[in-house]
Amino acid sequence: MADTLIHPNWARPPIGITEGFSLEMTAKDEASLRDAAPLIPAETPVAITFLPGEDVGARVAATVAVRELGFEPMPHFSARRITSEDDFEGYLKAVVERAGVTRAFIVAGDPPAPVGPYFDTSALIATGAFERSGIRAIGIGGHPEGHPNMTVEQCWQVLEMKVGDIAARGMAPLIVTQFGFDPDAFLAWLKELRARGIDVPVRIGVPGPAGIKRLLSFAARCGVGASTAVLKKYGISVASLLGSAGPDKLVDAFATGLGPEHGRVRLHFYPFGGLVKTLEWIHAYNRRHGIDRT
């Protein structure tokens, strides 16, 4: 079953909306990951981002730490930030050999022009390096609120093409969306995704609890819709930007709104307020809803 190539937990029916969640971290979050480890279920997928100015050794070390702690590492590869073929394949070889990586996530990256030979994620897929290295699943980005450099139709065409290319190379495609504050936009996007015949697992991006100003800063940086009406749905009042906000209303909306028409869906948390804080929120949410397994 292709879903098990994504991760074994896809084969289990989820108990509650947060069952089988995944997390995101940066290389500098390694110490925080160790602090949060007791709160993270075994085999939880953890994505390691590819940020500018980071030392590749730090990313490799963070990936190794994810594996050593009993979780499933999924390192990012940012096409336009990769300087050369050796840079790409050297990093891929390191995480496969040292951390047993079998899943990767690919993004084009923010720079308008590549610093090396790869303009976009399709160029990385076309090298064949992932399947040669034993990668079994590839994650790609989904944009329920659109993309700043593509029309809505172009977004769908590119997504469908990449899903097809990954599957044709014998790997399992996974879509991980940008985070957002508007559940209605995500639910509508998921319905259209399935109506277009794209029937692959999806992880919905959810912002972990964080300071309101911090959340809005990330939203502006990532092109996430944050109108007054949308923020009100999420539980933020623009009249007061002090304090913190959590995704309670957003996750509640997914718990009640997701149905068979939305396909196979799990949550992916962006821990803007820190890994420990996000994990504590998940456990508190589960306890309130009678679904905590700990």
Rank of each mutant, 00 (worst) to 15 (best):
E160W: 04
L159K: 11
R67T: 08
G273T: 08
V265M: 10
V64K: 15
S240G: 14
K162D: 07
V60L: 12
E54Y: 13
A42V: 11
A168M: 10
I198Y: 09
K233G: 06
I82S: 08
A36S: 03
V176Q: 15
G170C: 05
V107E: 00
D182T: 03
M171H: 08
V276C: 09
T151S: 15
R288A: 14
K233L: 04
A123M: 15
A239G: 15
P41D: 04
L33T: 06
K232V: 01
Q178S: 05
L69N: 12
P13E: 09
P114R: 05
V200Q: 07
R293C: 00
L39Q: 10
I282E: 06
G16S: 07
P114H: 06
L242E: 14
W281T: 02
A255D: 15
I40F: 13
S244D: 13
T83W: 11
T151F: 06
V107T: 03
V176E: 13
P209C: 02
A2F: 14
F272R: 10
A61D: 13
S84K: 03
K277W: 10
M1Q: 14
L23K: 06
T102S: 11
R196Q: 10
G246E: 08
F21G: 01
T102V: 12
P173Q: 03
E24C: 02
P183E: 12
A113P: 02
